[in-house]
């Protein structure tokens, strides 16, 4: 402190380039970043909670229509996408593992593989959506699917498109974040010494996976 006071105005003692001035140490700064990310993820859980509770209420109100409708969803696509997302979660976890070990190139490779998996997920989702559009498995008054003519079926598809749509939006945001993080890692911004950005991007991506883990049985299996 006294050292800082002795310097001319606008100058300050040398410190870690990653350290922001309002933190006493890099470790505290990283802990604060992690906590902030978790608080944000908490709000994300709440955002999806509303939809999950809405799903539960309508499933409780229209059990037969919901069971019949979920049986007409593309189960192969849901299952493949579950495996794709789980594997992409693994590659993100491995990216952090590699950067911790000082292997930035391997970390960048893992992040890029994750992006490929994310694209595959969106591609399969697009095929699914196209099929639903052709079959008129659509929300509200646009629902004209001949095989399931039950009250409440249009609510299943309203919730289906809301939940998978919001989840898909999160996939796109997650891909953007991962792409930026991969670019920064490739340019040496992150290293074994400082990699909290990759960690936080990873947390976001795992949340995307986490939500899908619940969407998959609710929308495709039961």
């Amino acid at each position: 402190m006294s050292e800082a006071a002795a310097l001319p105005p606008g100058e300050h003692p040398a410190h870690d380039p990653h350290l922001a001035h309002h933190f006493s140490s890099l470790e505290r700064q990283v802990d604060a970043s992690r906590l902030g990310m978790w608080l944000f993820l908490c709000t994300e859980v709440l955002l999806f909670s509303g939809l999950f509770v809405g799903y539960a209420v309508y499933r409780y109100s229209f059990p037969v229509a919901f069971a019949a409708s979920s049986r007409t969803s593309e189960i192969w696509a849901g299952t493949v996408n579950t495996i794709v997302l789980i594997t992409s979660s693994l590659t993100v976890a491995l990216a952090i593992h590699f950067v911790r070990a000082g292997r930035q190139r391997a970390a960048v490779a893992c992040l890029l593989i994750t992006l490929v998996f994310a694209l595959a997920f969106l591609g399969i989702k697009a095929i699914e959506y196209t099929a639903h559009f052709h079959e008129h498995q659509l929300p509200g008054r646009y629902y004209r699917f001949e095989s399931v003519r039950l009250p409440g079926a249009e609510m299943y598809w309203a919730l289906y498109f809301l939940m998978t749509g919001l989840h898909g939006l999160h996939v796109v945001i997650g891909m953007t974040v991962l792409a930026v993080i991969a670019w920064r890692t490739a340019h040496g911004y992150y290293s074994a010494h400082y990699y909290v950005g990759i960690e936080l991007a990873g947390l976001y991506w795992h949340l995307v996976d986490l939500i899908w883990i619940f969407l998959y049985p609710l929308l495709y299996l039961i």
């Binding site: 693994l90 960690e199 990873g202 947390l203 795992h206 996976d209 986490l210 883990i213 998959y216």
Partner: peptide, 15 residues
């Protein structure tokens, strides 16, 4: 099963 899977992701993948 979904809760078990999410616990695995939260505890180990999310550290």
């Amino acid at each position: 099963i979904a809760v078990t899977k999410s616990l695995l992701v939260i505890l180990f993948f999310m550290h």
